[in-house]
Each structure stands twice: as structure tokens, then as C-alpha cells.
Amino acid sequence: MTGDSEKTYCFKSENKFIVKSGCKKRMWRSLKQILTAERALPWHNEAVLYYSINAPPSFRPNKKYSDISGLPAPYIDRHSKLFYSNVEEFATVRSLPMDITAGYLLLRGANTMVG
């Protein structure tokens, strides 16, 4: 009656999971929660579960690439922690505002102090 969200279709007798707007929503477990729940069960040894086929961690040394250009980066700016590959890039790196450097670090997953 108040829009499509509560429209009923003839092939359906009632909504299974869709709740009326305004009613309490069912909380859906996230994949992470589902996987933790799954892990806690006493599975057979041969059972293969979602988490057990994760790719192994990388054993090869990570290559360093300049954050701003993507070129191979032999240097790191101690001030901003950004990688750079040559003199011009260093000048650019030094002139970048804080939010941009933070964005680059976040993109590389290097924004946290640990690890």
C-alpha cells in the first residue's frame, strides 16, 4: 500500500524474509560471523569448509612500488612513510598534503603502526 517494498506478488503467499517497513528488522549474520560459527562446530577431519581453502600467505618478499606513480621504488620518505622512485617524485611527495599521504598509506594498507 505504501509503495513497492510491500507489494505482494501472486506467486507468493506471504513474504518469507522481507519485513514490513517499520517493523523490527532481522539481523543477518555477516559472512565472518557465519564462518566463526561454522568453525566452532566439531567437523569431521575430511570436511572442507569455507575458511580452510583460503590462499596461503605470501612467502615471496613484497616488491616496493612508488605510491604516486607505481614505478619500482627503492626509497622511502621517512617523514610521510611513502615510497618514491626518484628526485622529482620526492619533491612531489614532500609537497603532498596530509590527507593525500594518509590516503596513499591506507590504500597500501600501511596506515597502522603495527605490521
Binding site: C10, F11, K12, S13, K16, W28, L31
Partner: peptide, 26 residues
């Protein structure tokens, strides 16, 4: 992986209604 089944139900509604299914009840 599908985890949000309210959304999945809306998608099914969309699918079945756009295929023109007009059978009563199922």
C-alpha cells in the same frame, strides 16, 4: 556468499515478476 536473505528475496521477486510468472501461490 549470499548472507542477506531479505535482499535475496527482493531479488527473487524481481526475477520471478520480470519473467511474468503469474501462477497463483507458488
Amino acid at each position: 556468499v549470499v548472507t542477506h536473505f531479505e535482499a535475496q528475496e527482493q531479488v527473487f521477486d524481481y526475477i520471478f515478476s520480470h519473467l511474468g510468472i503469474d501462477n497463483e501461490g507458488s
